[in-house]
Amino acid sequence: MTLILFIEQLLNGLQLGVMLFLMAAGLTLVFGVMGLINLAHGSLFMVGAFAAAGVAAATGSFLLALIAALAAAAAAGALIEVLIMRRLYHRDHLDQVLATFALILIFSEGTRWLFGSFPLYLNIPPFLSGPITLPGGIQYPLYRLTLIAVGLLVALGLAILISRTRLGIQIRAGENDREMIAALGVDIAKLYTIVFAIGAALAGLAGALVGAIQSVQVGMGEPVLILAFVVIVIGGIGSIKGALIGGILVGVTDSLGGVLLPALFRQFMEPSSAASMGSALASMLIYILMAGVLVVRPTGLFGARA
Rank of each mutant, 00 (worst) to 15 (best):
G32R: 09
S276V: 15
G42R: 02
T193P: 02
G258A: 15
L249Y: 05
I7T: 04
M220K: 03
V97Q: 07
P131T: 11
L167I: 08
A280W: 09
L64C: 00
D254S: 13
L256H: 01
I188T: 13
P141S: 11
R144C: 08
G35P: 04
L152W: 07
N12F: 01
L122D: 11
E109V: 09
V218Q: 11
L256G: 01
I138G: 15
V224R: 05
V218C: 08
G238E: 06
G185T: 13
I169D: 05
P298T: 10
T253R: 04
G257V: 04
A68M: 11
L161R: 03
S108T: 11
A291D: 05
H41I: 08
V224N: 00
A200H: 01
G32D: 09
Q15R: 14
T59P: 04
G130N: 10
A159K: 02
T299E: 14
S215N: 12
A51N: 02
L79T: 15
P298N: 10
R266S: 15
Y89W: 10
L29S: 00
G246F: 10
L27W: 01
L114W: 15
L301S: 10
A24W: 06
A189C: 03
H90P: 00
A99H: 00
L261S: 04
P271S: 08
L16D: 01
T133D: 08
G110K: 04
A76R: 11
L120W: 03
